[in-house]
């Protein structure tokens, strides 16, 4: 059994996850999301990536971005490298897809803030 601290919510439950006859058993969770997290963490850990991308034509210089679902942990730094190549133009609405199916993970990179086109942009 592997001890896993659940990061799904601030409660931080201590889970015990282990493989047993073909399946995975999770104990110590206090909600269904904990069980799903324990299973995923044991089999293939995933994380949501949040960062910022360069934005032009706005009154701010960085656009907050995130993956719209968690991606495999080992793809985090490759995802960051991809975010560094982005140049977004204002205006942009929160939720707009900036990059589809990042690294084949099935997750999209989306804008996490609505940014208007500025009359007097920064650059």
């Amino acid at each position: 059994m592997t001890e896993i601290i659940c990061i799904t919510c601030p409660r931080g439950c201590r889970l015990l996850a282990g493989a047993s006859n073909g399946g995975v058993t999770v104990t110590g969770n206090r909600c269904p999301r904990g069980e799903a997290y324990g299973r995923s963490e044991l089999l293939h850990p995933v994380r949501t990536v949040t960062s910022t991308a360069a934005i032009q034509g706005a009154s701010i210089s960085r656009l907050p971005v995130k993956t719209d679902r968690p991606i495999p942990k080992e793809q985090i730094f490759a995802c960051m490298a991809l975010i560094h190549t982005l140049r977004v133009q204002a205006p942009i609405a929160a939720g707009s897809i900036l990059y589809e199916n990042i690294l084949g993970s099935g997750a999209n990179l989306v804008a996490a803030r609505t940014v208007e086109k500025a009359a007097l942009p920064l650059q």
């Binding site: 919510c9 601030p10 949040t50 910022t52 907050p64 995130k66 996490a112 803030r113």
Partner: peptide, 21 residues
Amino acid sequence: IHNGFGLHYFKEELTGPEYAE
């Protein structure tokens, strides 16, 4: 810009700017 906001209030996980918005 990290996520984890709004689990109690909106019952979903938002980043700070999304929660503010």
